[in-house]
Amino acid sequence: MPEILVGRVDEFDDDTRVIIELEGAREIGVLRVGNEFYAYSNRCLHQGGPVCEGIVIGKVNVVLDDEKRALGRVFASELNIVCPWHGWEFDLKTGQSASEPSFRLHKFPVRVEEGSVYLIV
């Protein structure tokens, strides 16, 4: 499988989105969160928005007590990426939709070697 050299590890921070444009107007977005790299098709499953260029934010949960009273909302440790067009959210690790599990962004492997980041397409 062809690999694309995307850049150096230190060229990424949490706010950087690298967009690789392929033939047929396909786009893949590569992002770094902490020490992990992720790559997804940069096309939201909703209306085609640039999903990889959205913010990464904690999945929101509601805390219930033993009697199922809602105590408030908290950010979970799991992270979601949010399409900037309309707010559709996807699990950062899997690409699975936060609201409809049968929807999933196409994920691409990323390899890091000797300080360089490679996208496998």
């Binding site: 050299l5 850049g7 060229e11 706010d15 690789i20 392929l22």
Partner: peptide
């Protein structure tokens, strides 16, 4: 096979500007 792709763009979320043409390119 490793290639250095020429069609890479790099965006920073906190650039603080907005360009509708860019935002709506899809």
């Amino acid at each position: 096979m490793t290639t250095q792709a020429p069609y890479i763009t790099r965006r920073a979320l906190t650039a603080g500007t907005q360009d509708t043409t860019q935002l709506l390119r899809h």
